[in-house]
Design a binder for these strands. Structure first.
Length: 493
RNA sequence: GGCAUCGUGGCCGAGUGGCUAGGCACAGCUCUGCAAAAGCUUGUACAGCGGUUCGAAUCCGCUCGAUGCCUCCA
């Protein structure tokens, strides 16, 4: 039996503003779409947090036994620089700046994106479609919306008619906006705007002569509007209605609102059952942003090469740090917070290592079944990873007590504990045990065994000068000796 | 200006009507030749002011502060 049949998962649906029992449209299949990155620059850590939240969600769905089709797009057509007439997209702008082909820019940053996610131990999505690979599908959708009379063409551009759409649909239901309010609070617009109403948005934009990313269309050469690709690709791969649509909180309006409008204009149906929004990672209390430069890159975290950092952090430490906060909460990045997470992470990993070596007893001092279910309960409550981690630390405490000989565990329970810890820490949270430098471990272990033996001989002879010298010099080298009841072990930091 | 969200002990961060997560730091103790590691113990925190309630960090109102969206951004 699949696990999901015995677990009662609830998710917070942005559309209803409530936690709802999760029931996929089709029994055991889940269709999940997440708005991916715009590949005109390196992804920063804030981008990674959103994708990591959905990676965790994807992992948990899979663990529960669902068959998941996870689609995460690559936005390589670029979004409009302005909604005004200069109509140059971001990728084209960057390309000209660097005197290279737009697709070269796209390629470079797509590779960077993949490399970064791989370091952070992401699972690849089922499909990773590109916007430029789906121009035809986007044009088809525009035709359909035009036929329905909810869009209009002006000088080779096509705009979605929000006011017309609102006559029969609720534009603003996702972000809690009212069209009247939006109209009342309209900002001053550039005079030459082609739109009938400021709330209208582009489905297709005419390409100016200098615009190098362009495709032919029934309305002339141009490029698709920036909300359309997600509608085209989600519909193509997941159908007109699918289970989960995710993305960053900052995409809620207007991007996701417009996606709903486009899909409803075509099909008359609400495209998504559960809208999930991941919250922002902040730096200095402010949202990370490419345009303002308030950001930090994953490579800087891994190398420690940034003024706010006192040291380098392993990718898994970053992952652990992010998983210690709920995905719907804002999380602020700081060196202190990373330092604290790093310690906790290593403590968890140490305990998981130690569990392998622990002695078997005839009874167990803690209720494994109950503990395991608490872990599931945490995840079932809208993917509450911080609570899950709290439970993981409860297990850490027991492992350490067993190791000390204060508590015991049966062989059967030990297996359950190991399997459960592995499941949640590695499979669901996506952590990796990077604490041990295993590459040279044979040599290192041999050398360390020798040093530990020499030190113990010195201690037996009460030659503490020698024994302390061995220990202290190793400490300086980043190797820590740990004297326990069963002898001395070591860890490399 | 409009619409939202948030403000939790030294720091990070859950919770959201009574049962007061967790991590890190700090202190004491146990262990140790001394340490480290590990364990145990201790912290009665919920921006402020009112209100509802037998009872509020949790609900309501106001004030203050911060942030997000309204314009490309995960």
């Amino acid at each position: 039996m699949q696990l999901y049949k015995s677990q009662n998962l609830k998710v917070y649906n942005s559309l209803s503003g409530k936690k709802e029992i999760f029931e996929p449209i089709n029994e055991d299949h889940i269709g999940m779409y997440v708005c991916g990155p715009t590949v005109y620059s390196n992804v920063h850590l804030g981008n990674c947090r959103t994708f990591m939240s959905f990676d965790m969600i994807f992992r948990y769905f899979k663990h529960l036994g669902y068959k998941v089709r996870y689609v995460r797009n690559i936005t390589d057509a670029g979004h409009l620089e302005n909604d005004a007439d200069d109509g140059e997209d971001k990728i084209a702008k960057k390309a000209k700046l660097e005197q290279i082909e737009p697709m070269e820019v796209v390629q470079r940053y797509t590779v960077d994106f993949h490399n970064t996610l791989q370091k952070l131990n992401f699972l690849p999505p089922s499909i990773e479609p590109t916007a430029t690979g789906h121009i035809i599908e986007q044009i088809e959708i525009i035709k359909e919306i035009l036929e329905k009379g909810i869009a209009y063409e002006v000088n080779g551009s096509v705009y979605f008619d929000v006011v017309k759409f609102s006559e029969s649909n609720d534009y603003g239901k996702l972000s809690g906006r009212k069209l009247e309010d939006m109209i009342a609070n309209t900002r001053e617009l550039s005079a030459q705007d082609e739109k009938r109403n400021p709330q209208d948005f582009a489905l297709w934009k005419r390409a100016e002569p200098q615009h190098i990313m362009r495709w032919p269309s029934p309305w002339g050469d141009g490029f698709p509007g920036w909300h359309l690709e997600c509608t085209a690709m989600s519909t193509k791969y997941l159908g007109e209605t699918f289970d989960i649509h995710g993305g960053g909180m900052d995409l809620k309006f207007p991007h996701h609102e417009c996606e709903i409008a486009q899909a409803e204009a075509c099909t008359g149906k609400s495209p998504v059952k559960y809208w999930l929004h991941a919250n922002m990672l902040t730096l200095n209390g402010k949202k990370m942003s490419k345009s303002t430069g308030n950001n930090i890159y994953p490579s800087e975290i891994f190398s420690g090469d940034n003024d706010i950092l006192s040291k380098a952090y392993a990718p898994s430490v970053v992952r652990f740090f992010m998983m210690q906060a709920h995905y719907t909460s804002i999380l602020d990045l700081s060196d202190d917070a990373l330092l604290a997470s790093e310690k906790g992470y290593y403590r968890l990993m140490d305990a998981m290592d130690n569990l392998e070596k622990v002695k078997i007893g005839s009874t167990s001092d803690f209720d494994l079944a109950q503990w395991k279910q608490k872990c599931y309960d945490a995840m079932n409550d809208n993917f509450n990873t911080p609570i899950l981690i709290a439970h993981l630390f409860e297990a850490v405490k027991h492992i350490n007590l067993i190791k000390e000989g204060t508590e015991t565990i049966t062989e059967e329970d030990k297996a359950i504990l190991q399997q459960t810890l592995n499941t949640f820490a590695y499979d669901v949270l996506g952590l990796e045990n990077q604490v041990v430098v295993k590459d040279d471990s044979n040599t290192l272990d041999g050398v360390m065994d020798l040093l530990i033996e020499l030190r113990n001989q010195a201690r037996a002879n009460k030659d503490f000068a020698t024994s302390d010298q061995i220990r202290d010099k190793l400490t300086v080298l980043g190797i820590q000796l740990k004297d326990g009841k069963d002898g001395t072990s070591f860890s490399v930091n």
